[in-house]
Write a protein that binds this DNA or RNA. Sequence first.
DNA 1: GGGCAGGATGTAAGCGCTTACAGGCAGCCG
DNA 2: CGGCTGCCTGTAAGCGCTTACATCCTGCCC
Lengths: 351, 351
Amino acid sequence: MPEAPTIYEVARHAGVSIATVSRALRRPDDLREETRERVLRAVAELGYVPSGPAHGLATGRTWVLGLARADLHDPEVEEGHETLLFADEVLRGMEWAARQAGYAVLLATADQLWRDFDLELAGKTDGMVVLARSVSAEVLERLARRVPVVVAAGPDVPEGIDHVSVANSEGTAAVTAHLLEDHGAERLAFLGGPPDSPDAASRFNGYRAALAVAGRPAPGRPDLAADFTEGGGRAAMRAYLADGRRPGAVVCANDQMAVGALAALAEAGLEVPDDVLVTGFDDIQLARHVSPPLTTVKQPMRQLGATAAELLLRRIDDPLVPPRAMVLNTRLVVRQSCGCQEDDDHPTAKE
Amino acid sequence: MPEAPTIYEVARHAGVSIATVSRALRRPDDLREETRERVLRAVAELGYVPSGPAHGLATGRTWVLGLARADLHDPEVEEGHETLLFADEVLRGMEWAARQAGYAVLLATADQLWRDFDLELAGKTDGMVVLARSVSAEVLERLARRVPVVVAAGPDVPEGIDHVSVANSEGTAAVTAHLLEDHGAERLAFLGGPPDSPDAASRFNGYRAALAVAGRPAPGRPDLAADFTEGGGRAAMRAYLADGRRPGAVVCANDQMAVGALAALAEAGLEVPDDVLVTGFDDIQLARHVSPPLTTVKQPMRQLGATAAELLLRRIDDPLVPPRAMVLNTRLVVRQSCGCQEDDDHPTAKE
DNA sequence: GGGCAGGATGTAAGCGCTTACAGGCAGCCG
DNA sequence: CGGCTGCCTGTAAGCGCTTACATCCTGCCC
């Protein structure tokens, strides 16, 4: 790196002023063709690339969007892959939308324990997307004082902040209705998530709503619950069966627990879907590979990221637009664990 | 956002000069305690966060590292998940190392078709990690003219550029040796990857080397090959079996194809590992969930990212250090598809 | 041929920081 | 009590761009 050339070198090389160089790059139409080409040639010859900081300082914009997502505690852990995948997919969607608008994406991984990150990162961006519960309410508030913020899939969004979330409740409602209406399921049970998870709570609510719609009694709390992990799901299901219970269908609050439940059911000699129907939530990659392939509710992860980015860009453009809350649809993905024969999918929910 | 406060407001608020504010933040020890606290209080009250561009322009550093990785063609495709996961994990490792050094990570997703990306992004970074074959040789060259570059897991690295790669060849050699020595495997076959993949080629070479060491004849080309996908692996294996061949063991160039091969074997009524042994490469999440769990070679993805970041930081610090090429070890992950009874893992390879 | 319009380019003032250097002041020595 | 040391803080010069405004030309019109 022989010291990156600046706009001054290019100007000298092309025999013009630095203003002209800037124009050749940013508003080519303002220049006479011959001048423009001369400048562009100099740019190419020198391998000139404008300094991001200088550009940013002069325009008052960084042209960068930040994403705050949670870190995994121990860099070596293999569990929690799903959380990661979720964030990766959101990132993908976000980057896609950002790029359309000429923005790049900067990563700000939040410490899982403190639920915060170096705020100085925010100074490098024009706005940030905060994913799920990656930062604390207090950090969120401080952050929002400095740059526009959009919360994605997060609970408890403070007044006045844009956010996008997923129709969790409608998702489980749809899959439950499918079980009820299309398979005449009886003796349903719900395998819930951790008590402090708002997602788990909404999913349970959707389940209850579907039962109510069908005129069935709905329980006040999940019949069994675990911590969203495969192992937890297996243990919970084992204990449930050990009590002598024999559900006709198990609606699970996520796929990993459903996979665990499948294992426990198999251990107990129960056939899915012949003896029991099982459904999940998320549509992780594994869902289609277990046996039988898992009927589940697909989360629109990429769309979540893309939508968050769009809301953010909109607010950057005009800080005064009224804040918006969006809810994205899930999609029912029918495979065999619900008793269906062939793959198929039905859309669900609302905006 | 009531217009983000600048260092001037903070200075006024605290009754000091802007230089003192800057010092309070960057070199706290240079100030009298009382002054420092006064400034810090003003900073907190105003919610001041320094402007990234201004800081960058003044220091001549962006404190940002870039990662160039390949885009997926169609945002809707679900295939190719593995490639994605690979990049995500590398990113994770890179971010981890970058953060240690006070750097953030910016994403520069390269267009899959043109194998390039907006070079202006490079102007926002102090250096870039280029992943695998995400950018063309020409773009790489132009990029390297502007900022320090480290290539991770990429082939054909130009002279003078740092790079990190994975000991592909040693990986397959180890797993092949395991088959040969610990299981007395006979009639081995190699399921290779696409012809233009250097990784696939190295993996095949490792296989041959292990055969040679064992005094067995080694084929000049893979016995069967596919495109690294599950479907491809299944098709290739089917065709192979349809020809009446009955391998005693199949070493696959990646996990996805191994999973496909497993399926084809099952269709043909062959039991793994009783009739045939099968191994993969990568250790994707799925590997432990297929039946039987797949013995494979784990790639150090995070480490790849972390090491690349470290090489980059080193070069940013001192552009004149001699370029370095590093090779990371893989690890043999023994599960049941090779005929072993219990899980276990053995390290392999060299720096 | 003078004057004027309008397009192309140059001039120069910032953008918000960092940091070398200058300046001020307290304490201490002789 | 003058002057010197050193510590602390302020002054001001950039860092590399963008852009409003000034300037210069060319071409035309009357």
